[in-house]
Design a protein around this nucleic acid. Sequence first.
DNA 1: AGAAAAATGGAATAAAAATTCCGTTTCGAG
DNA 2: CTCGAAACGGAATTTTTATTCCATTTTTCT
Lengths: 277, 277
Amino acid sequence: MTVPTIPPASYEELRNELAEKHEGLSKRLKQIAEYALDNPNDMALETVSGIAERASVQPSSLIRFAKAFGYSGFSEMQRVFRSYLVESGTNYKDRIRSFRNEHDQDGAPRNIVLDDFIDGGIAALKNLRDVVDPDQFEAAIKILGKADVIYLAAQRRAFPVASYLAYAFAQLDKRCVLVDGNGGMFFQQGHSIRSGDALLAISFKSYSPEVIQLVKETREKAIPVVSISDGLLSPLSQNSDVSLEVEEVEVHAFRSLSATMTLALTLVVALGRELQK
Amino acid sequence: MTVPTIPPASYEELRNELAEKHEGLSKRLKQIAEYALDNPNDMALETVSGIAERASVQPSSLIRFAKAFGYSGFSEMQRVFRSYLVESGTNYKDRIRSFRNEHDQDGAPRNIVLDDFIDGGIAALKNLRDVVDPDQFEAAIKILGKADVIYLAAQRRAFPVASYLAYAFAQLDKRCVLVDGNGGMFFQQGHSIRSGDALLAISFKSYSPEVIQLVKETREKAIPVVSISDGLLSPLSQNSDVSLEVEEVEVHAFRSLSATMTLALTLVVALGRELQK
DNA sequence: AGAAAAATGGAATAAAAATTCCGTTTCGAG
DNA sequence: CTCGAAACGGAATTTTTATTCCATTTTTCT
């Protein structure tokens, strides 16, 4: 056992190293290398003795194996296998990190802040693809399509989304009321909703109490409520007939609205088609 | 802590359980539930004390948390989080594909629409990186930073951007006036601008005549004007001291606002920094 | 406001896991 | 065939990690 090189830091590197050195390895180590390439998941998640058993090898061989590739022990090597697991997964916060690093390199005097937001926005959009539940989306369109008048409720950060929707719905000749709280008449506006209408509420944490209250009240009247919010824990999701989930990334302590805006727009287009039938 | 139910065996079940029980949980447990939903990766891979630290919680609380959901200990719950990692890693790409096909067949093109907008949004953001002129951006920040009050003017499709900016500026303690034309008083609002202030106007084709007019009038008063618009041909650009160019992609006859929103946000953050000096 | 119950923090303990160590086996050169 | 070096197996040890326990704080109910 020689060649104490610098240990591979990414799964890809490790994979290559494994394939390359494979020939020169001893019997047991070969066996392990093969097992590792075939079952990266096990390597990432199982314990040393667990893997040892499955691969028909002694635990100590696994440690030797890791050391043969330059790691200080098995645990260190396992970290590499784990990093692979999270990268390939859905989680996108990590993707952002890798994005950033990519961009940091070219030393051009770019607008760093803008780059961050662009990367964040892109990540949020990609994530949107994964988290939007098609059934919920379908259901939302159904409800909104049937509604006589769509009431739009949103405050603060979410308000621009509602105002955009109001504009777009108007373009579609879909009647809507923007409950904007103008003149302190949030509830007066909101309470004029009635059977046959639908409420589309948008709010993110920290959730606007007015919007939450309106959602609850509307639901008690047995009027359908569609919500756009951030995650299952949102009080909006919990009190809506249908809820669409969006997660915006926070960059520099500010949240973008790219993903939410895109979802809103999609809603508009899908609704437009529904109405054409 | 009661209700020893059968513990959720899949990530999906666990997710739902988490959302459902969330309300009834104690402070610390709630905190953990939120962290878990936001960071499933950590829950799957980190050690108890690692997670405890990141979530600002005691290790023992994590064990209590797991037990509150019926598991024998944290490790058992962690297995569920891990199973999710494996599934999403292995089948991730396939899942998405099959998912799309499903819907293609029953003729529901929703996902396709969403995909189009997502792709469009991403393209617009990437484009933004190239078209924004750092010098102009810098100049815009200077002007806005020096302004006593920032007047925000936008109509129709651009209005949501202005309303978002109004919200964000308020967060920065930067005084601003949203010239929204409420009550038909667009010009009354707009004309109250005076020396020492600045106007930030946003408009896209077909350009809002009111906004154009306000820009011209303001400029005649020798008050600085910053504009966000689409291209150099825009009458806004031509009458502004500084103009920022954004190009949104049109998909299905609708324009998104992702890029514009991102630019707006960047402006906010950059302005925030400027103000701190 | 005060007592009882529930929740929490944090150190102590138990359990599990990784790693080392060493006697034994295998392999290859002379 | 024999010797030496490398590889291996497996128990012993160390380290890390999970879990428990109890004193203290916070909440709830009266």
